[in-house]
Computed example of a mutant assay.
Amino acid sequence: MPAPLVRDLAKTASLTDAAATALRRRGVADRLAGLAARTGWAAFHEAAQAWIDDPAQSLDAHFLQAFEDLRGLSASGLPAPARPGT
């Protein structure tokens, strides 16, 4: 694996771990804290790419849109996959 990719993955893990730890300290359940931290990081990357593609809007506007898209996706009522053993 190329060294820059290894550094990027390590940085991502460090930042998401720090965010999850901060959420846990604020009373967010362990599993949800990790999910929120990773989702936030993914939304940031989506917003950053959208900003690169469309700099006429602010990064903040793209970030808000990414979270609005996530809200819409979660509210769409997609069926949950069957769990093993059920």
Rank of each mutant, 00 (worst) to 15 (best):
G34H: 04
A3G: 04
H45M: 03
T86L: 08
F63W: 12
R7K: 10
V28D: 08
L70S: 07
A20R: 00
L59A: 09
L32I: 07
A82I: 07
P4C: 02
A50G: 05
A13Y: 07
D8P: 01
M1L: 10
Q57M: 09
D60I: 06
H62M: 01
G72V: 02
A19T: 15
T86I: 04
A50W: 00
D54I: 00
A20W: 02
R31F: 03
D54L: 02
D17I: 02
L59W: 04
T12W: 03
T86A: 11
A66Q: 06
D8H: 13
I52V: 14
P55W: 04
P4N: 00
L64H: 14
L32D: 15
P4D: 04
G34L: 00
P81D: 04
Q49A: 14
A33R: 01
G77A: 02
T16F: 01
A29Y: 02
R71D: 14
A42C: 05
A18R: 12
A75G: 05
S76Q: 04
W51M: 10
P55L: 05
H45L: 09
L32A: 11
A13N: 08
D17G: 05
A50S: 14
L5K: 05
A82S: 10
Q65R: 13
T39V: 09
G72Q: 06
A33Y: 00
A37L: 06
D17F: 02
Q57T: 09
L15V: 14
S58P: 12
L23R: 07
E68G: 15
M1V: 06
L64C: 14
Q49E: 12
G85T: 05
A80T: 04
F44S: 09
L32N: 10
L15P: 09
A3V: 11
A43K: 03
L64D: 15
P55N: 09
A20E: 05
D69G: 06
R31N: 09
P81H: 00
S14Y: 09
F44W: 15
A3Q: 06
A19I: 14
A10P: 01
L9H: 08
D60Q: 12
P4S: 05
A3W: 09
A37V: 08
H62A: 02
G72T: 07
S76T: 03
W51Q: 13
E46T: 14
